[in-house]
Amino acid sequence: MGFISVFFNVVLVNPMINILIMLYVFCFKNFGVAIIVFTFIVRGALTPLSVRQSKQFKAMASLQPKLKSLQEKFKNDRSKISSETMKLYRDNGVSPLGCLGPTFLQMPVFFALFWALRGTLPSTPENLTKLSGKLYFWLPGVYQAIPINDNFLGLSLGKITTDNPLPYLLPLLVGISTFFMQKSSSPPSSSQQESTQRMLLWMMPGMLGYFTLFFETGLALYWIVSNVIGIIIQGFVVGWSPILSIFSRSKSKPNNEIESTQVDTQNLNEEENSDEVSGNDSKDSGRSDRNSVKRIRRRAQRSKNRRDK
């Protein structure tokens, strides 16, 4: 355990602390700007992984109708469902691990960032005494840059969020940005999973916003900027429809929504069955994605037409 901790600090946390301080020096000693630039760098470095993950989610989403029909078809044979599901994924070049892999790769980076930000913005004299040992002596200007001026737009980035003016603003922004981030990157799920997902969609941002109250404001800033970048990446890769659907849904009447969902589901099942019968599966997953998106649009248009009539 001790070795892991040392390795984690030496390989991830300490380099991040030194990069943050160098950025602070280069960003005219404005630590808020340094955190924002740093977030861009981290997100930039992780972009290939994020894009790959988004593409995998998108591909999985396009297979959702087929998965539903498989579940219907083999509803009494669980092993058959799983073998057919894996076959479907394999045939379409989708790897469920491809969705999770990047997530797990990002975890150590996030944890290291968490400690790096807290280490760079020591909120107590005790913590400042620990910072010296984490700095690279050979890096010019790093030693002289401390103490960091943590003032950013009237907020003290080194203070616990509740100590700042407008103490609930940043947790609120963390919650909102996390909600949109989750909404834009929610993976496709079965109907049983949907209720769990809906609950998590509201619960997670609330909890994250609440926890933010107990940490340094700099962490909240990182989290907000990171979420905004993540939403933009998702938007360009997957499309903006998950985000836009929040606003369009809120405009429509609830009764219509339920009705249209039922009609859409019915249509989906019909079409999925016809797809399966025709055996018209494309081996080109990219084309398959595009086709499925088109199909969904056509269905939505048809159901809208029916309602209008």
Binding site: T103, T124, E126, N127, Q182, M204, M207, F211
Partner: peptide, 23 residues
């Protein structure tokens, strides 16, 4: 969702272990 769950758990753990460090 998995990412979020892990992060929330991590932050909750961080909260529990955080005492501000002022002694």
């Amino acid at each position: 969702m998995i990412t979020m769950s892990i992060i929330v758990a991590f932050m909750a753990f961080g909260c529990m272990n955080y005492n501000g460090g002022n002694v």
